[in-house]
Write a protein that binds this DNA or RNA. Structure first.
Lengths: 259, 259
DNA sequence: AGATATTTGTTCGTATGTATT
DNA sequence: TAATACATACGAACAAATATC
């Protein structure tokens, strides 16, 4: 019966009436689309925008703040400063998606159930989109996994490099959806790395197995053998899940916090 | 050499110095975690927060605005009002993710490449998590697809109902990652529905085929036959992709705009 | 139902910081 | 270096919303 309320609405109370600054933020969005503005173009300055949308400076600032948090504009001071339209960055999007996942108390099984699906598809779709520079970078990344000291910092580096391999691959994926989510999951797992010093040999074995998989993946990618790429990545993920399960149980801590 | 700049940084210039309001927003985030605040708890009122973080009211408001846009708090006026910690809602997260995808100019192929992977996994993981009420709702949804008038509004309704089936299924998926993304893709496709009146028979055939798949899926879900569920959903997606391709080519318009 | 107290929402004026010329 | 143009920050006053009595 009221105007606009949330769809979920269990017992939680939500704001009933939209704020003026929010409405102006949406008006600006619509205005941007109507004017066919593209990334890089400047918006009018604060004073003019305030006049255009008929509100005070402070209110307009809150509206711009909203767009800025959404990653749609960047604001700069100085002459020729002001709000410029921006493409939403990967970093900004994931930060916001992580806020959501923070409350979902994900388990390792759940993360890997998703990762298996996405990562396999991503790897397959990357076939045929790699140049020599790409292969060089991938091989360099595998090289980093080779140096296995037994100090904590060394092990940490190895795990990071392993994830880098996947992020690198995602970078060459022509499908933005797969690329985004593959990278998102890798970043999620990155925060999740907690060294456990009580199972050093499990760690070593995993490192070796991973390196093998990465090498074989590069080979299959060179041959442009889709079937092999898919199969290898699937097996790789199966084993990675098993290993991760041995080490920890829950993936939910402090995802929200930006380090 | 400067302090904090974006990782992407092609030719685009980005703000060099972090703003005070942004820093305070992050300080508040940290404070929330440090205080072990959970969803539902109130934050101190503006005046006290401004004192706590030593800034003016306007600045603090911009910081709160940032958190609000991120969906982390709701703010209300009146006695016992103020900012209360909220779980980030699905709607908010997708809105922000859509902002990102708006700039990626997705093609139908790309959306379906992702959808196939996610939807199959989602359907399989939902096996064993459906009660009688769930089945009743699914069957009701299939029923809606049956009434096929030839008016535009009727056809529109049918397509919506078809997507509802998938959203419904996602709702019972125990994996938040799969559930979220399955629903996200459905919502993405929902905006994409543009009726084309020039190919009415293709439309009818697709409607019939879809209904069959949905019915068979329900059967397989009742039998808790994982293998069949996976296979059916995979075939279902293959055909859905082919049909969608017949109708349109690009999925990128106005994803950003909230209707 | 109405008055009131409480808390956010909006506005203005002014001062400061920063980047361009 | 100085002048200029712009965003950023502050503080005080007033407006609007809403829970409670």
């Amino acid at each position: 019966m009221t105007s606009g309320e949330a769809t979920l609405g269990s017992g939680m109370r939500v704001p009933q009436k939209r704020k003026r600054s929010d409405m102006i933020a949406e008006e600006i969005k619509r205005w941007i689309i109507a004017e066919h503005k593209v990334a890089g173009e400047r918006l009018p300055q604060e004073r003019d925008l305030a006049a255009l949308f008929d509100c005070a400076k402070g209110t307009l600032r809150e509206a711009l703040k909203s767009l800025e948090v959404q990653g749609l504009i960047n604001v700069r001071t100085g002459p020729n400063g002001g709000a410029v339209l921006a493409e939403v960055s990967y970093d900004r999007s994931t930060e916001l998606l992580r806020n959501y996942m923070h409350f979902q108390n994900l388990t390792v099984e759940q993360v890997y159930e998703f990762r298996k699906a996405v990562e396999v598809e991503m790897a397959v779709s990357v076939v045929g989109h790699l140049d020599e520079e790409a292969f060089a970078r991938l091989e360099e990344s595998v090289g980093c996994c080779a140096c296995s000291g037994h100090k904590e910092s060394e092990q940490m580096k190895v795990r990071q490099a392993e994830l880098d391999f996947h992020v690198l691959l995602a970078q060459y994926c022509p499908n933005p959806l797969l690329s985004f989510h593959s990278r998102f999951i890798s970043d999620l797992l990155r925060d999740f790395i907690r060294l456990r010093t009580d199972v050093p040999d499990a760690f070593d074995k995993f490192t070796t197995v991973n390196r093998d998989f990465h090498r074989q993946l590069i080979d299959a990618l060179r041959r442009e053998d889709r079937e092999a790429v898919g199969r290898l990545m699937r097996e790789h993920m199966e084993l990675a899940e098993r290993f991760t399960l041995e080490l920890e149980g829950v993936v939910s801590e402090n995802l929200m916090l930006v380090p």
